[in-house]
Amino acid sequence: MIVSVIIAFIVGGLVCVIGQLLFDVAKLTPAHTLSLMVVIGSVLDGFGLYEPFIDFAGAGATIPITSFGNSLTHGALQEAEKHGFIGVLTGMFEVTSSGISAAIIFGVIAAILFKSKGKVS
């Protein structure tokens, strides 16, 4: 178990380093960087590589935003396997929804609870 946590730390950390290089070296904005990483995750799943990556790294692979692209593709592929082309359209949100729905729900709750503070970091 401790091994899994350490592996999640190392792999997750490395994924973030890739993001940082996109920030600092490629000079991409956060929005560009995150969009790119989601696309990478989705393409990797197309080659069937993301699931083994999750098997290996656990949260190191599911917590970075790349897993978003993976689960979107995965949902689409699962449905496509069952229902053919229609499934590509309908299966998309089959798997992913937790991240998006959590963000929406907690976003609204946060808007009710909090006000922004401009304190310096």
Binding site: G12, G13, C16, G19, Q20, P30, T33, L34, I63, I65
Partner: peptide, 10 residues
């Protein structure tokens, strides 16, 4: 990016 790339950043 360490805090932007994980789903917490999303």
């Amino acid at each position: 990016a360490g805090s932007a790339v994980p789903v917490t950043g999303f």
